[in-house]
Write a protein that binds this DNA or RNA. Structure first.
Lengths: 148, 148, 148, 148
DNA sequence: GTGGTCTAGACCACA
DNA sequence: GTGGTCTAGACCACT
């Protein structure tokens, strides 16, 4: 894109790459929320960072701007993002807590455990023992479409 | 009449254990569908096997029978289950294909890759590198109840 | 924003008229499914066309919305319809195949032959020879209401 | 079959050929009822005619004897059949009325109109005009499977 | 406003 | 005893 908006250099933009999976079952707005959450939990986005504008992101993700607005809106309600009219949407100062009364690190660990647990459970349901998982992962090569 | 209908010993019942996760976001009936699919893909359930009755499973899972019926019904539309009113619901003969024109083994592998891919992607979004995953898994201990 | 999303004029609504026959024996939701299928097979409804809303059709047919939802839902599982929550239910792009790996025209012809065959068989069971059927049909006048 | 039961020569047996279509959607016992009704309406079976025994028919149709018994039972409740213990099941003297307070001929005509009406309606739903039907029927050759 | 999920309960069809 | 159909109504998710 060609348009540039001048901003303080400390303000970092778009340290986040959204990737949607429309056939995922999960609603788009929720996928966006998750990706923002994960980016913050993982430290890729930090308080003060600016998010893409609603319109820009809507174009990029080929979705309805309302959908982006809803995701941002919900994140704002939770205190994770703040909107400054005229200058954009930013990661809030209290964001790392992500609404939970816990430390940022603890929040990340919880989420990791949650994802891990679901994975181990799913694999067990598919008949794959936990002991086989490390090897499976080492042999796993990305790129082949694995979304449904 | 003197003849009793002897069922082949291979006719097995309830080689499947359901566990719901209400905080999952996923609807109950979809969780049931997934667990039946996985049980078939993994070979734990085979064509001809009988599933728990709608009412029994509703009691076990503390849900409404209609919810179970919906899950079974959708699986029947897809050709994975067949029902014989009055005698129960069974894994269909063509079930291992699970609707795809592929072999049973290939179906299982696809699903494993799909789950694997989603896991690796989620972890990357959380800032965890693929290389760290094997160790994470080895250290992961189950037990924190997130199932019901 | 100034841009309005102009829908192509080809986007048509309700090129389908439902009529239920309660004394038919066939469940309501199945009658609806058949009528949608036939409307698509015959080309009266085409991919992208929107169906009546669940609630509107429930009022029109004097049934419970759940019954309509069930019919639409089953058609969606079969890939014949797609739903966009919030905006409605539409004929899927791949719908003309109606689940069979054949051309749209071939699908229509098959269904016509199927209906024809059942008719000839029923009439033979009633003692009416195939040769008499053309005359019977020519003399048949509709109007005796058996629909609602 | 080898066993013969001596009976008055006037008693005619099995002027009826049952053909079931299991994938029809219609329950088996109902298909049997319909075929008996049609046979009587069309005059192929007449009062006093004997029907196949429950067991013989169950073997022939590869169904559960209970299913046959239910069909015969329901027809007996309606007064269409009568059972004489030890000698078999027969078409009742009042059978031609088929439960309706109308003449036999009128009953047949009603049923024919009903089947005709459903056929014309289905064909219209498939986009086939009534005027085309006579030709379609003349060109129709049986034998190709047309059941679903 | 759209459709989606779930519950509760009635009544029917089938073996 | 099985599963199937339908109703009524609550509450949620999404545009």
């Amino acid at each position: 894109m060609n348009s540039t908006i001048l901003e303080p250099e400390s303000s970092r933009l778009e340290r986040i790459r959204f990737s949607l999976n429309p056939a995922n079952g999960a609603p788009i707005y929720r996928q966006i929320i998750q990706q923002v959450e994960y980016a913050i939990l993982s430290g890729r986005m930090r308080p003060g960072d600016r998010l893409p504008t609603i319109r820009a992101l809507a174009v990029e993700l080929k979705t309805n701007p309302n959908t982006i607005a809803r995701a941002y809106g919900e994140l704002e309600i939770r205190g994770i993002l703040t909107t400054q009219v005229g200058s954009g949407t930013f990661v809030s100062d209290k964001a790392p807590l992500l609404g939970a009364a816990i430390s940022a690190e603890e929040g990340l660990n919880r989420k990791i455990r949650e994802v891990l647990g679901r994975f181990v459970q799913d694999m067990r349901d598919l008949g794959v023992d936990k002991a086989e998982l490390p090897n499976l992962i080492r042999n796993y090569k990305e790129g082949e479409s694995h979304d449904v």
